[in-house]
């Protein structure tokens, strides 16, 4: 099927909680998962295929994802291999703004980007969390992400002792 035709037909997707969203083919094809689905429906056309159900993404998250893919639909997307090589590249200011959201939303976004297979979005959102972790103490990380301290005093002492060998003095 020719998915590179110049026109950009409308496509609908349905979130896990039943909300329908409309977007364009070009945008939705940024998702590797949906691209695979569409490539397999064969002749019959994208126009007639009906709404795509996305059972793993709720409506709030899907809205965010759609906002991102619509903004980036004309940009060339790096492949997962290309993303593996980059470490601290420059971030588009639009994306920087876009990622200003609370952690719960960010987690949901990561899960969705992973499920939908959008490498660039996954890279942006995981990197965002990595940036929050950078240069923080264990206690700060715990309170930031609301993680329970499950060490016994003996265990944490053993870990700290071991870690002493990991720093150049």
């Amino acid at each position: 099927m020719d998915i590179d035709r110049p026109s950009d037909p409308q496509v609908s997707v349905v979130s896990s909680d039943g909300t329908m969203f409309h977007t364009t083919l070009k945008s939705i094809l940024l998702s590797g998962t949906i691209k695979d689905m569409i490539e397999h429906i064969g002749e019959g056309g994208v126009e007639n295929m009906g709404a795509i159900p996305l059972q793993n993404v709720d409506s709030k998250t899907l809205e965010i994802v759609i906002k991102w893919i619509e903004h980036h639909k004309d940009n060339i997307q790096p492949t997962s291999e290309e993303i593996k090589d980059k470490t601290a590249d420059f971030i588009d200011p639009w994306d920087e703004n876009f990622l200003e959201m609370d952690l719960d939303k960010l987690y949901n976004l990561i899960t969705a980007a992973n499920y939908l297979n959008i490498p660039q979005l996954l890279w942006l959102s995981t990197r965002k969390i990595a940036m929050l972790i950078k240069n923080r103490t264990p206690q700060e990380i715990r309170s930031l992400f609301n993680i329970e301290d499950d060490w016994t005093p003996q265990e944490i002492e053993a870990v700290q002792k071991e870690n002493q060998w990991c720093e150049e003095k």
């Binding site: 264990p138 990380i141 329970e148 870690n163 990991c166």
Partner: peptide
């Protein structure tokens, strides 16, 4: 994406 010192801190988190 994290460096060795961040990873070391993470090993002490939980």
């Amino acid at each position: 994406y994290l460096s060795s010192s961040d990873l070391i801190a993470l090993t002490e988190v939980c």
